[in-house]
Structures are given as structure tokens and as C-alpha cells.
């Protein structure tokens, strides 16, 4: 059972501003029946076309999706469009005294519907967000790269699991998790490069803590080893790291493959030594 705040339950049981608006100034919609949640948001401006005079929503979804939509309408009523366009999913979650981590995507859906509605007013175009030139990352839930980048930046996300919780990307077949990691690596590289223009040289592998060793090895395996193995229907998992000795297990077609030992020395060990800068490092397949 989800641990919802009193505020979430209140907005779920007594949703504010439910319905549609006749002749709205802007309409935005995100989500779909297939995805399990959807939100249609409509607003009308005051006579001077400055502030949001009325806003209504319709939501298909769980308790937190309904509560997030309701909260959003309360937050933006009376705002100028510039003010409203600065509202983020983090603001929605905060207004509700927090959401369970796995439900943060409900607040992101609110933010995206609002962006779409404002864009609809400003351009007069489609009520659906235009993401044509933006690469599609998650085909199961239709999540584009810009949406992941936005969620990462606003919410300071650092792991693929978090990205899934916030955007649903990677939450079904999981094939895009590598692509999400690549986006994260790029974003995090950017973020850490900004405050510290001269990053310190990475610590030698032998001096890393066991946890950091595992993370470092896993990163190399994911980025440089698995893509090659997967071409042949194989895979590899990290079993243990003891000192400079890395134990791995070959999976899929690699398990029991005659050439696995060659792969271990020529690919896995080579890539790990290069990337981690430690020639003493040894790989053992079990």
C-alpha cells in the first residue's frame, strides 16, 4: 500500500477544478489509455489576457495522478503564464507534502500537460507537445530525450531507476535503460563539470572503496562490454570484486561459449584495464 500524505488523499477524495472549459485559451494533454494515465488540462485567461482566470482538468489514473492534477490547478490559478510556465513537477510534489518516489511521474505528467497547454495558447497549434525533432528513448511509454533531460535537471536525478520513477522511461521492457544511462552520464558530467572546472584525476582503482569499485566496473561493463556481447546474444554479470580481482559470469550465448576465455582476456580485461587505468587488474570468469 502506498504511503500517501494527507494532502494527496484530500486532493484524491476531493479533487478541485474537475471538468472542461468552453472556448479555452489553452489546452494540453499528455499520456494515454495504453500508458495507464492521462491528463487533459484547459485554462482560460482573464480579459486582459494576463492571468489564468480559470483552469479545469480531467485525469485518468491512480490516486496520486488525480491528486497531482488537482494540486496543479490550485497552484496556477491566478498566475501569469510566465509564472505558470516556471512551475515544475518538484513544486507540485512539494505542494502535496511529497509523493512516493515511484509515483513522481504523476507530478511530471502535470508539469508536461501545463507546458503543452501554454504552448497551445502561444502557438495556436496542437494541444499535444511537439517533440518531433527529439529522439524517442522509451518506446513502451513514448518518452523523449528532452523529457528525461528536463526531469533529471529539475529533480537532480542520478540513477536510471530514478529516471524510471519520474518519467516511466525504462519501466516496461527495459531495453532503453542503457540509453537512459548514457543521457544521465552526459547530464551528470555536465553538472559536475560546471562547479569544478578542473576535475581531480580519478583515484587509482586499488584505492577505491569496495562500493566505488563495483560501480566503476559495472559502468565499464555496461558501456563497453555488454553492447559487444549482446550482438551475439550474450551478456555478462559482475559477481564480486576482491582487491584487483574481478569475478564475472558470462550469460546467454556467452555462457559455455568456446571463445568465452578469449573474450574475457581480449575484451573484458582489456577494457577494464584501459578504463580504470590499472594494469594489475585481473578478471576471472566463474
Amino acid at each position: 500500500m502506498w504511503d500517501y500524505s494527507e494532502k494527496v488523499l484530500d486532493h484524491f477524495h476531493h479533487p478541485r477544478n474537475v471538468g472542461t472549459i468552453e472556448n479555452p485559451d489553452g489546452v494540453g494533454q499528455v499520456g494515454a489509455l495504453a500508458c495507464g494515465d492521462a491528463l487533459k488540462l484547459a485554462f482560460k485567461l482573464d480579459e486582459k489576457k494576463e492571468r489564468i482566470a480559470d483552469v479545469k482538468f480531467q485525469t485518468f489514473g491512480c490516486a496520486s495522478a488525480i491528486a497531482s492534477s488537482s494540486a496543479l490547478t490550485e497552484m496556477i490559478k491566478g498566475m501569469t503564464l510566465d509564472e505558470a510556465s516556471k512551475v515544475t513537477n518538484a513544486d507540485i510534489a512539494k505542494y502535496l507534502d511529497g509523493l512516493p518516489e515511484q509515483k513522481m511521474h504523476c507530478s511530471v505528467m502535470g508539469m508536461e500537460a501545463l507546458e503543452a497547454a501554454i504552448a497551445n495558447y502561444r502557438t495556436g497549434d496542437t494541444t499535444v507537445r511537439e517533440l518531433k525533432d527529439d529522439p524517442l528513448v522509451c518506446t513502451c511509454f513514448n518518452v523523449h530525450e528532452s523529457e528525461i533531460v528536463e526531469a533529471v535537471r529539475i529533480n537532480h536525478l542520478t540513477t536510471v531507476e530514478q529516471v524510471t520513477n519520474y518519467t516511466k522511461a525504462g519501466g516496461a521492457c527495459g531495453k532503453c535503460r542503457g540509453a537512459i544511462q548514457a543521457i544521465l552520464d552526459r547530464e551528470l558530467g555536465k553538472a559536475s563539470a560546471a562547479p569544478a572546472p578542473a576535475p581531480a584525476a580519478p583515484a587509482p582503482f586499488a584505492e577505491l572503496s569496495p562500493a566505488k569499485k563495483v560501480m566503476a566496473v559495472e559502468k565499464v561493463l555496461e558501456a563497453e562490454v555488454r553492447p559487444a556481447l549482446r550482438l551475439d546474444g550474450g551478456d555478462i554479470e559482475l559477481v564480486d570484486v576482491q582487491g584487483a580481482r574481478i569475478q564475472v559470469r558470462f550469460l546467454g550465448h556467452c555462457a559455455g561459449c568456446m571463445a568465452a576465455n578469449l573474450t574475457k582476456n581480449g575484451l573484458v580485461e582489456k577494457k577494464l584495464r584501459e578504463a580504470l587505468g590499472d594494469d594489475a587488474l585481473e578478471v576471472e570468469a566463474i
Binding site: V30, A34, C35, A38, K40, T59, F60, N142, E147
Partner: peptide
Amino acid sequence: RELSPFGRGEEPDDPGAAR
């Protein structure tokens, strides 16, 4: 169902749209 945008015979445009 009163809360839901679906099931009124007039579905929102492009229900499979990007989000």
C-alpha cells in the same frame, strides 16, 4: 469516469500521443 478524459465518445485527439 466523471474525472476521466476518456469514455465520452469524443476521445481526446491522438490518445497515443507523446508525453
